[in-house]
Design a protein around this nucleic acid. Structure first.
Ligand SMILES: NC(=O)c1ccc[n+]([C@@H]2O[C@H](COP(=O)([O-])OP(=O)(O)OC[C@H]3O[C@@H](n4cnc5c(N)ncnc54)[C@H](O)[C@@H]3O)[C@@H](O)[C@H]2O)c1
Ligand SMILES: NC(=O)c1ccc[n+]([C@@H]2O[C@H](COP(=O)([O-])OP(=O)(O)OC[C@H]3O[C@@H](n4cnc5c(N)ncnc54)[C@H](O)[C@@H]3O)[C@@H](O)[C@H]2O)c1
Lengths: 227, 227
DNA sequence: GATTTGATGTGAAACAAATCACAAAACACG
DNA sequence: CGTGTTTTGTGATTTGTTTCACATCAAATC
């Protein structure tokens, strides 16, 4: 029943968010219309890929006319639920939790950290505007704010028990910063963020790059590396 | 010359790091030998995949005998440069930078944040053991500690200029927390970490899951989702 | 030492993702 | 109104990844 389920976010979905960020920026600059190659240039992919990605998520533009930015943003908001407010809880108010609780971009993206939780009584006081509660109030808050998604920023050793409790109280999706694979029922979405691995991957590719002598052989590297 | 190059870390490489974490844990528990299915169980993949991944990176075990953990870890350390020390600089000592500078796992993985940098003079004093310098000392430190990899944790607006400066001083790989695509020469490795996108992806999949009524249709979801 | 057993390692097959190529649509302009 | 141009949207093709299948080897058993 409970099992390790490491959900890997599809690259096409990641690219969609990239397109969206570009669109928001272009809109701010007063641009009203884009073509697939506009977005392609902005995001470093091909125009084919932009159109294929849109096709995958059923996003349509105007033949010859390209895409109206407002229209496109609205479509994306509907498909990816970006316009609705999402209440989130954050467990673990240590270094990482504190940084995340102060991150203003979440709110800008309609994601509200409605409450944070910590077992340490010392941390259970207002900090940076967002209340820090004891774990005993978890269920109450999850119910009250209809929270479906949580962030885990507790030590490795506690992550599994915290996940279990979250899921028991109805949480369906977790972004997990602890470097452990959580065992959860198959209908719970887990997204692991492991910063050591992100760094180590870069180090590995950099070493590889250094071995490739001279720029003429750079394609040998790229052949073995998604980019 | 300079271009957007969003390096996507290969999933096979990410899985390798997963295997390694398992191996370290198993070793601590006193285990000395593993089979491909041991690692498979520990990491939620298939044993075929474990062997195929090892094959990709030229990691070999013993026919019938499985893999000796120490041997395997040593091989991985050599291939992925995990045994050597890696000096890293961190730019931007705001909320995120501070959390990262205090993260003990980096050191445990032989990655030393030798110095951090910030333009804000108020932040340029010892904090949490790691010195905070002004940007004017960047070149000096990068040269002295032969730094090749950097973490960018400055605001969106400054990320590109910081990247330019880092690269000018010889940095070859960057983990970038700012939600912008950096324009860099093709021989610089960029790994973007975008936490808003990670959360929004989870929200999207959770919504999808909620639409699927009842567990019997869960495979419909999984068909459209890597996991 | 022959035979059975159990695991690796890797081609082959199946599946998935990215790229290519082009028909279809929309607009521009004579 | 018709012809040329431009861009979308999507089948077809290619490329990449995962799964399958099994030959190969090494140890255990007889
Ligand atoms: N600090 C970073 O930059 C960083 C980076 C990547 C990953 N992480 C990971 O994030 C997690 C947190 O890291 P950190 O540096 O903030 O650690 P930390 O020790 O500073 O904070 C952990 C917090 O969790 C609380 N906690 C412990 N057990 C709990 C429980 N059962 N229920 C609720 N709260 C509990 C602690 O009281 C503490 O406040 C760790 O798993 C770490 O590996 C941290
Ligand atoms: N806080 C988070 O949880 C979080 C999460 C994900 C991503 N991020 C991203 O990480 C980056 C930093 O976030 P933060 O919350 O720490 O912001 P912050 O404003 O708290 O910190 C930014 C720091 O960078 C310094 N800085 C600004 N310009 C600089 C320059 N040119 N050179 C050197 N230092 C400079 C500032 O003085 C400040 O100390 C942002 O791009 C943000 O979007 C933050």
């Amino acid at each position: 029943m409970k099992q390790i389920t490491k959900h890997v976010i599809k690259n096409s979905l990641k690219r969609i968010f990239l397109y969206r960020a570009s669109l928001v920026r272009l809109k701010m600059m007063g641009v009203e219309k884009v073509f697939s190659y506009t977005l392609a240039n902005e995001t470093g992919v091909t125009s084919d890929q932009v159109r294929k990605d849109f096709s995958e998520y059923n996003i349509k533009g105007n033949k010859r006319g390209g895409y109206d930015i407002n229209d496109l943003l609205e479509k994306m908001e509907n498909i990816f639920h970006l316009n609705k407010d999402h209440n989130i809880v954050l467990i673990g108010m240590g270094n990482m939790g504190l940084a995340l609780s102060k991150y203003s971009k979440f709110v800008q993206h309609n994601m509200n950290v409605v409450a944070t939780f910590d077992i340490d009584p010392f941390k259970q006081k207002m900090r940076s505007g967002i209340p820090v509660y004891s774990m005993s109030r978890l269920k109450e808050i999850i119910d009250r704010f209809r929270v479906k998604v949580a962030i885990i920023a507790v030590p490795e050793i506690s992550a599994q028990e915290v996940a279990d409790e979250l899921i028991r109280h109805g949480i369906m999706g977790i972004v997990n910063f602890a470097p452990v694979l959580l065992k959860v029922p198959p209908d719970v979405i887990i997204n692991n963020v492991n910063l050591c691995d992100e760094l180590e991957s870069v180090i590995y590719y950099v070493h590889k790059l250094m071995k490739v002598d001279g720029l003429k052989n750079i394609e040998l590297l790229y052949r073995d590396m998604k980019y």
